[in-house]
Simulated scan of single mutants.
Amino acid sequence: MPRITLITRQGCHLCDDARAVVSRVADDLGVTWQERSIDDDEALREQYWEQIPVTLVDGAPHDFWRVSEDRLRTALA
C-alpha cells in the first residue's frame, strides 16, 4: 500500500500544486504514492469534494487544500 495517497479532481490548480509537492517528497524519501480522483470514485467524492486536494498518509487524513512540504516530510519520518 502506498504511504501517500493524493485525492484530486480534474481541473484543480491546487491539485497540481499538491501533486508537485507529493511527488518531490516521495522521491526524496523513497516512499510510494498514488493519486485517486473523486471524478472516478463516488465514495471519495461524497467524502472529500469540499476539501480537494486531500493528502492521506498511511491511510489517515493528513492535509487538505494545500500540502505543506515540511508537515508531509515530518509525518513520513
Score class of each variant (00 low, 15 high):
60 A>P: 04
4 I>C: 05
33 W>Q: 11
31 V>D: 06
70 D>F: 06
51 Q>T: 08
30 G>L: 01
67 V>C: 11
11 G>M: 00
49 W>R: 04
65 W>Y: 15
54 V>D: 12
48 Y>N: 05
64 F>Q: 02
2 P>R: 04
11 G>H: 11
41 D>G: 09
24 R>T: 15
69 E>K: 07
53 P>Y: 03
31 V>F: 12
5 T>A: 14
40 D>V: 00
10 Q>I: 01
40 D>R: 07
8 T>L: 13
34 Q>V: 15
1 M>Q: 04
54 V>P: 00
37 S>E: 00
38 I>L: 00
25 V>I: 13
68 S>H: 14
77 A>D: 14
9 R>I: 05
60 A>S: 12
75 A>T: 10
47 Q>R: 08
54 V>C: 13
45 R>L: 10
51 Q>E: 12
52 I>F: 07
75 A>M: 05
47 Q>K: 02
32 T>I: 02
77 A>R: 03
38 I>G: 06
43 A>V: 10
42 E>S: 11
52 I>T: 01
34 Q>I: 08
26 A>F: 02
22 V>N: 10
25 V>N: 07
34 Q>P: 00
46 E>K: 03
57 V>F: 07
66 R>I: 11
10 Q>K: 02
19 R>N: 14
53 P>C: 08
51 Q>C: 12
63 D>S: 15
58 D>S: 03
66 R>E: 09
55 T>V: 13
13 H>N: 13
19 R>Q: 15
16 D>T: 12
38 I>E: 03
22 V>T: 06
11 G>W: 11
56 L>C: 04
22 V>M: 02
49 W>T: 11
69 E>Q: 12
36 R>Q: 07
73 R>C: 03
65 W>K: 14
51 Q>Y: 12
2 P>E: 06
4 I>F: 00
62 H>V: 14
57 V>M: 05
12 C>I: 13
45 R>Y: 07
45 R>E: 05
43 A>G: 02
24 R>D: 15
69 E>I: 13
51 Q>G: 06
18 A>C: 11
39 D>H: 01
10 Q>D: 04
44 L>C: 08
38 I>A: 10
55 T>P: 09
11 G>T: 13
20 A>Y: 06
17 D>Y: 10
60 A>V: 14
44 L>G: 11
28 D>S: 09
46 E>T: 04
37 S>G: 02
11 G>F: 07
38 I>F: 08
49 W>C: 09
51 Q>V: 13
4 I>W: 00
11 G>C: 10
7 I>S: 03
22 V>I: 08
72 L>D: 13
31 V>W: 06
66 R>V: 09
54 V>G: 04
60 A>K: 01
41 D>T: 05
66 R>K: 13
43 A>S: 07
64 F>G: 01
28 D>L: 03
68 S>N: 12
23 S>F: 12
35 E>I: 06
62 H>C: 13
75 A>R: 03
65 W>Q: 14
23 S>K: 15
2 P>D: 08
26 A>G: 02
25 V>F: 01
16 D>L: 12
59 G>L: 09
42 E>V: 08
75 A>G: 05
4 I>Y: 00
8 T>D: 09
46 E>S: 01
24 R>M: 15
28 D>P: 03
5 T>P: 09
9 R>A: 04
7 I>T: 01
15 C>Y: 07
21 V>S: 11
